[in-house]
Each structure stands twice: as structure tokens, then as C-alpha cells.
């Protein structure tokens, strides 16, 4: 699941954008500073990458819980953890 949209139809305002950004950082269960919140048409889009699927689900749940009437799209991926296929030579 990379994208889910839920919520009402009222367009978000600047203060809501800031409130979501602070929720993502300051809520103990999220603590993510690397996610971006942007407005797209009449919804807010939360983008970025996190370390586990559990964290992505928790972000979606808490944003919808705190802002039940807000149209929100969550587009968050998992950061890959494969071994590198290349090295950088520094001479």
C-alpha cells in the first residue's frame, strides 16, 4: 500500500498543514522529521519514506484520528535495506 486517501471535502488551510507537520514530528508514536506535507488540489499529501510498514500504518491512523474531516493522501514508501551493488572510489 503506497497511497491511501480518506477524509472529508473541505480544503486544508496553512494552519492545518503546520499542525500535521508538527504531529508527524512531535507525536511519540511517529517522531518523523523527514516527511513532507504539501497541498494538492483540495487535499493534503503526506510523502516520504519510513523504516517499517508498521510506522506507515501508524502515521495514517493517527493523522486520520486527529483530523477526521480532512482529505488526506498518504504516499509513504519503505526505505530499502539491500547491500550496495557499487562502491565509490575516492582518490
Amino acid at each position: 500500500m503506497n497511497e491511501r486517501t480518506r477524509g472529508g471535502t473541505e480544503p486544508p488551510d496553512d494552519y492545518l498543514e503546520a499542525a500535521i507537520q508538527r504531529l508527524l514530528t512531535e507525536h511519540t508514536a511517529i517522531a518523523e522529521q523527514g516527511l513532507t506535507v504539501t497541498r494538492r488540489d483540495h487535499s493534503l499529501v503526506v510523502c516520504g519514506e519510513v523504516e517499517s510498514a508498521q510506522r506507515r500504518e501508524e502515521i495514517l491512523r493517527l493523522v486520520l484520528e486527529r483530523f477526521p474531516h480532512l482529505p488526506v493522501t498518504v504516499d509513504i514508501g519503505l526505505i530499502r535495506t539491500q547491500a550496495p551493488s557499487e562502491v565509490e572510489e575516492l582518490r
Binding site: G34, R80, Q82, P84, E88, L90
Partner: peptide, 19 residues
């Protein structure tokens, strides 16, 4: 200077061969 933040390198780690 190299930024090795995990979301930037998108792999478990980067490797540098420093001569």
C-alpha cells in the same frame, strides 16, 4: 562530503574506497 542518511542512499549502507 557525503550525506549517508538512509533515505538518501536507499540501501543498507554505502561503501567508499578511500585511497
Amino acid at each position: 562530503v557525503r550525506n549517508v542518511a538512509h533515505p538518501v542512499i536507499k540501501q543498507a549502507y554505502s561503501v567508499f574506497h578511500l585511497h
